[in-house]
Design a binder for these strands. Structure first.
Length: 510
RNA sequence: GGCUCGUUGGUCAAGGGGUCAAGACGCCGCCCUCUCACGGCGGAAUCACGGGUUCGAUUCCCGUACGAGCUGCCA
């Protein structure tokens, strides 16, 4: 060999990158919710394509009939739409590379045809081994003495038994319709090497590689095989996927070599973990895009946050729209190490989005959450304004505004505040003084209420806090509130404000 | 067990032989202020460990530890 294999391949890839259009794909399985790891994969695939003016393809990998979940397709489409990751080609958007659903491709016999090609080349073979025989191959590997998940792990290493079947035996079995699979034939010696943009060159002894199944006994291809065939047929230039595929990539490489096809550029993304540095699970509560929406996050913030898991912008900017991301994203600077999904920072980021959101939009989004708490006829718009800079997710709204609906049962200790230099006795005086003025007041606008209280404060020569703290506490029954005394009273209106102040006076007078 | 990958503050991260080792979240303090927020200012906190290579390693190499992924007729 004149050149090391990998040098030759890099050459080919460079040529590809320059000469043909960048095409990436997102290839989810319709098995349920949109995991945030998958979302990031989709995002990065989208960004890579769009940054280069290329195409982003959606392909549905439904080759596992048992795991298919009804409605999962809708989740995929809705997520793509909701996040703005719009595909150029997909099941409902033919770009000349269809069909884009693997079960439909399977029905056309595409995978079997290519598998048979490999069989003819001796790169794959029919396997008629029964489940029982496979079971007999199962061995238990010993873990360390200390307890670990590894302890007593069972693995099956296929022994290439069917590779040695004679032509007659194979014909006979096929004729008798003995169930079969088609396996990849991987040599027992040598090494397989591939390049990953992020992880660099990775090399594995062929002996470590299993003769993986290409076509299952139900006639469907396995993910691995369908993936390679489709990526090639759809002219995908950059394969973007999670780190968990890194160790099976050598098998893909062998497949490409067996076919004599050029390999795509591999971009393996680092894992996203939970706070315990473990793979995100359904129990983490933030494992899927849908869960996050349910938790009051908005999709722009989720997308923005997820983009920053494993990558950061050269100018250090953090809050970025999808368009800005497209502009500056560079997959060559993606991190190798796994990233913890930090809910706290997501909350912050979501809060930033809410604070900077246009009033009208915020109002519309917040409305259902406000209505959930407020049934009275209050100025909802004003409440929304007050709450806007004080929440991180929509779910925070409830606790902030529930006092508008109903005065909580509070302790008179609340009237004591040393920084405000006030206590229950002072408060009682203030409220007693102010009550008749509020009773006389008919205009409950914020300005009028302010005028009433401030003129009283000036008159008595007390500090602002000494006059305002008792009022705010009386009308809210809370330590902290969105907005101050004026805003709250104005929203509550005359009748309810007076009622609450009288209750406070009563409490304070025993 | 084997193979592969990873390791910069609590978290996300920049940097990549000579830096006071950016920035952000969170935390703490101060300012603003009728509360809480918002906003402004400041602070504490990091190169996993051990060996090399080098005049000099956070940066390069090798080990160790720890973590993760794979080891399915799942993807």
């Amino acid at each position: 060999m004149l050149f090391p294999n990998y040098l030759y391949r890099i050459d080919i890839m460079k040529g590809r990158e320059n000469m043909s259009k960048v095409r990436t794909r997102f290839a989810p399985s319709p098995t349920g919710k949109m995991h945030v790891g998958n979302l990031r994969t989709a995002l990065y695939a989208y960004l890579i394509a769009k940054h280069e003016g290329g195409d982003f393809v959606l392909r549905i990998e439904d080759t596992d009939q048992e795991r298919y979940v009804d409605g999962a397709l809708d989740i995929i489409y809705n997520t793509m739409k909701g996040t703005g990751l719009l595909h150029d080609e997909g099941p409902e958007k033919d770009g000349g590379y269809g069909p884009y659903v693997q079960s439909e491709r399977q029905a056309q016999g595409i995978y079997l045809e290519y598998a048979k090609q490999l069989v003819e080349k001796g790169e794959a073979y029919y396997c008629f081994c029964s489940k029982d025989r496979l079971e007999s191959l199962r061995t238990t590997v010993k873990g360390p003495e200390a307890d670990g998940d590894d302890n007593g792990k069972e693995i099956i290493k296929y022994d290439k038994h069917c590779l040695h079947l004679s032509k007659e035996e194979i014909e006979k079995n096929l004729a008798e319709k003995v169930p079969y699979v088609i396996r990849q034939n991987i040599p027992l010696d040598g090494k397989t090497t591939f390049d990953d943009v992020i992880f660099g060159e990775i090399s594995v002894d062929n002996e470590e590689l299993d003769d993986m199944i290409l076509i299952k006994s139900d006639g469907y291809p396995t993910y691995n095989f369908a993936n390679v065939v489709d990526d090639h047929l759809m002219e995908i230039s950059h394969v973007v996927r999670g780190n968990e595929y890194l160790s099976s990539t050598p098998k893909y490489t062998r497949l490409y070599q067996a076919f004599g096809w050029d390999e795509p550029v591999y971009v393996h993304l680092p894992l996203i973990t939970n706070e315990e540095h473990k793979k995100l699970s359904k129990r983490s509560g933030h494992s899927s895009f849908e869960d996050l929406l349910d938790q009051g996050f908005i999709s722009e913030a989720i997308v923005n946050f997820v983009a920053l898991l494993g990558w950061s912008a050269p100018n250090n900017k953090e809050i970025m729209s999808l368009d800005e991301l497209v502009e500056v994203f560079d997959y060559r600077h993606v991190n190798k190490s796994p990233a913890v999904f930090d809910m706290v920072k997501l909350r912050w980021m979501n809060g930033e989005y809410l604070k900077n959101m246009e009033e009208e939009k915020f109002f519309n989004l917040a409305l259902p959450y406000i209505k959930e708490v407020i049934s009275k006829d209050l100025d909802i718009k004003r409440i929304a304004e007050l709450v806007k800079t004080r929440i991180e997710t929509f779910l925070d709204i409830k606790d902030k505004i529930d006092f508008f609906e109903e005065l909580p049962d509070y302790d008179i200790q609340m009237f004591t505040h040393k920084k405000m230099k006030t206590n229950s006795e002072n408060s009682l005086l203030v409220l007693n003084d102010l009550l008749p003025r509020f009773e006389a007041l008919d205009d409950y606008s914020e300005a009028a209420i302010e005028e009433t209280i401030i003129s009283y404060i000036k008159e008595k020569e007390i500090k602002n806090g000494q006059g305002l703290w008792p009022v705010r506490t009386a009308v809210s029954g809370k330590q902290s509130t969105p907005g101050g005394a004026y805003e709250i009273m104005s929203i509550l209106g005359k009748e309810e404000s007076l009622r609450r102040i009288r209750i406070a006076i009563e409490k304070l007078s025993f």
